[in-house]
Design a protein around this nucleic acid. Sequence first.
DNA 1: CCGTATCCAATAAGATACTG
DNA 2: CAGTATCTTATTGGATACGG
Lengths: 232, 232
Amino acid sequence: MELEKITSAGRGEPKRRYDDACGTAHALDLIGERWALLVLRELMLGPRRFTDLKVDLPGISANVLTQRLGELEARGLVRRRFLPSPTRVAVYEATAWGLEAEPIVQSLGRWAARSPAHDPTLPISGVSILLSFRTMIDARRAKGIDARIGFRFGHDDYVARIKKGAIKVARASEARPLSGCDAVFSGPPSALAAVVYGGQPLDLVGVTGDRALAQRFTTLFPLPPKVGADGH
Amino acid sequence: MELEKITSAGRGEPKRRYDDACGTAHALDLIGERWALLVLRELMLGPRRFTDLKVDLPGISANVLTQRLGELEARGLVRRRFLPSPTRVAVYEATAWGLEAEPIVQSLGRWAARSPAHDPTLPISGVSILLSFRTMIDARRAKGIDARIGFRFGHDDYVARIKKGAIKVARASEARPLSGCDAVFSGPPSALAAVVYGGQPLDLVGVTGDRALAQRFTTLFPLPPKVGADGH
DNA sequence: CCGTATCCAATAAGATACTG
DNA sequence: CAGTATCTTATTGGATACGG
């Protein structure tokens, strides 16, 4: 029988490190492993359970998810917590520092939006599309709007507040109920993506409340021009 | 003998893709493979040769560098070019879109600067430390300065222009010679890092020209407070 | 000097089955 | 549901060897 195997990953250090004092390289040591940043992204709008994460990260396997969560926790980016009684279920939530990684997610998303190889028909999680609204909103187009927009993605409800050209997004809650929204979208996130980013008609998604507002909402997130084959 | 092996990587598509319409995930498909973003970082201040890249990326092996460069080229981020006669050497340079990835490098670096695990004594490349100046400059501290600072890292010369609290960095050239600088640092990039980020005395590096200016320059890049063990 | 090709060992990721 | 355990495959890194 082998002795206990104490891997460095168990203590949060990547096994394969870049020996580089550059901050960018160190960031990649922390969140550069496959899936790590996408796991963190899924936690940007609040705590989630293991199985939610597995569902929203298409293709991740349970053992890799376990490993990534353990590493992120050991590195101080994620915390494992139990919800208060009577639920007592385990959830993973981003720490304050973990949430500070959002600019990374945004800069990656904004940059990739110009990619000619981007396939918008692939599945997308609710958290992803809501974060993309934060990234892509056109302040000029949103200027005159002051409204609350709700989203119902399966069991997960979110509320966005648009005001002064900016958008804030959070889970729906007692303080921010869907019922307080001027318009509410429902359906799978990929359908909403097809409408907002794919120019598909609004009736691909369910809409309740102010339909004209909902229609206008879908036009607030213009995509930048694609780059050509020569990278310009 | 096997038939020709046409890998998808040879056409620039990652073999292991995230099936996710999210822009962040797509960005990771493009530059998320090991070393890819660091290779691109090394090209941010101008074209470089294969061997320069290999030297400045400690630990990368020649075959991995070849592969990453080929993928980056196929994806439109990097172009391979021959310098004009009489040199005729091959160099790799970032395309316009590749250069647009700099905000990604910056957001990663800024975020990782708060990491308690960051080890500033590791080696660092000239490009890295100059890019870090762009990322970390404190506009308030740099407010009153209008100066040109030169850097001589081995065979590579760079010139930084500080003005109105901002810094611009470029390779030295006929138009921007080191001789036109108010102060010039020389020595290995890691020594400069020790002075600027490690609080070490100025005489770890060579300085010519206005020594007081050089001293002041080293104080323009304050590091943010480290996060605690609980991620706050 | 500038890479490319090949081979090998170590590690990471993926698939699947399984347990409390 | 929330993960582990196990097995297989893919990728990486290191060492060379080799061609222009």
